[in-house]
């Protein structure tokens, strides 16, 4: 007896899901006004966009459009969770000022511009960022500076988990991040280059950083203002005091950070820093049998 194709095609792939489908075209999201643009006003080389209720794709198109038309500064008002602001943006001497809380992946793949956030930021800031400056005048979320290869990121307050993972440096491309407050677990994990500075301002005796600090780290350096217990360290790193050259490098980074934040750098630098660095730039060199 020959089985018909209905019986032969009982393919056990799991329950079929029908109904609403997640991957709708990018513009059409419930409750979003779609392609409506934000109101823009111009003043000299400054453009001001009202981002209230504007869909992220449209908002980002508008930012690029204003810059192409010669705006040096784009000020965004009423930002509320729009993603990818500054994503892939390039250009020197251009600035985006964000009033409100931007969404995830701020400044992803960015090359050159300065982004100033006057409130908090969310996850994924400066993901794979190439060059430029991001200043956040509040707290920020998880996975900041993932794979960041250049530029600077300054955060006034606390940051979440997995910050500075796999930052890397190459020749004059040296990413640097200064965190004013505290950081959670996996700070600087897999780090391959660049500099992380953790100040722990306002930590009130709590731990400045979580566990697994610098796990898998094989390049770059982490400076922490205060103490870190042995159990917080990843097994590939150790602690040392700063050399004079490192001390002045920290002073330079903290000085710039404090300048943007309106803080007193001298006061911050009064407390001693420690250096966390990897034993080797080839942590798994002996893992394999050739």
């Amino acid at each position: 007896m020959s089985p018909d194709s209905a019986t032969i095609r009982r393919v056990p792939t799991g329950p079929a899901r029908r109904g609403p489908i997640g991957a709708e075209p990018a513009r059409k999201v419930a409750g979003q006004p779609g392609t409506d643009k934000g109101a823009v006003t111009h003043e000299g080389s400054e453009a001001r966009i009202d981002a209230r209720g504007i869909y992220y794709k449209t908002l980002n198109e508008q930012i690029r459009e204003e810059m192409l038309n010669g705006a040096q500064t784009v000020i965004l008002e009423n930002v509320n969770g729009q993603r990818y602001i500054g994503g892939g943006l390039s250009g020197e001497d251009v600035r985006v000022v964000i009033n409100g809380v931007p969404g995830n992946d701020l400044a992803t793949f960015m090359t050159g511009p300065t982004l100033i956030v006057n409130e908090n930021a969310q996850d994924g800031v400066a993901n794979t960022m190439n060059r430029g400056l991001v200043v956040i005048n509040g707290d920020a979320g998880d996975v900041l500076g993932y794979g960041m290869r250049g530029g600077r990121l300054y955060v006034r307050g606390d940051v979440g988990y997995r910050v500075g993972i796999h930052m890397k440096a190459y020749e004059d491309q040296r990413p640097a991040m200064v965190i004013g407050g505290k950081a959670r677990d996996f700070f600087g994990e897999y780090m391959a280059g660049g500099e992380l500075v953790l100040l722990g301002l306002g930590s009130d005796g709590k731990d400045i950083v979580g566990s697994y600090l610098g796990t898998g780290m094989h390049g770059g350096v982490i400076y922490v203002r205060g103490e870190v217990a042995e159990h917080q360290l990843g097994k590939e790193v150790s602690i040392a005091p700063l050399s004079a050259a490192e001390q002045s490098r920290v002073a330079e980074l903290v000085g710039d950070f404090a300048g943007w934040m309106g803080l007193d750098a001298g006061e911050i630098l009064e407390r001693p820093f420690i250096k966390i660095f990897p034993y080797t730039h080839r942590p798994y060199g002996k893992l394999y049998a050739y």
Partner: peptide
């Protein structure tokens, strides 16, 4: 864009992708 002689380590996961939503974000 990494220094000569360093191991080039690719982590097992993308550490910015722990979910389908994160994948959508990237």
């Amino acid at each position: 864009m990494i220094p000569q002689g360093t191991d080039a380590l690719s982590p097992a996961p993308h550490h910015d992708i722990y979910s389908i939503e994160d994948l959508r974000q990237l």
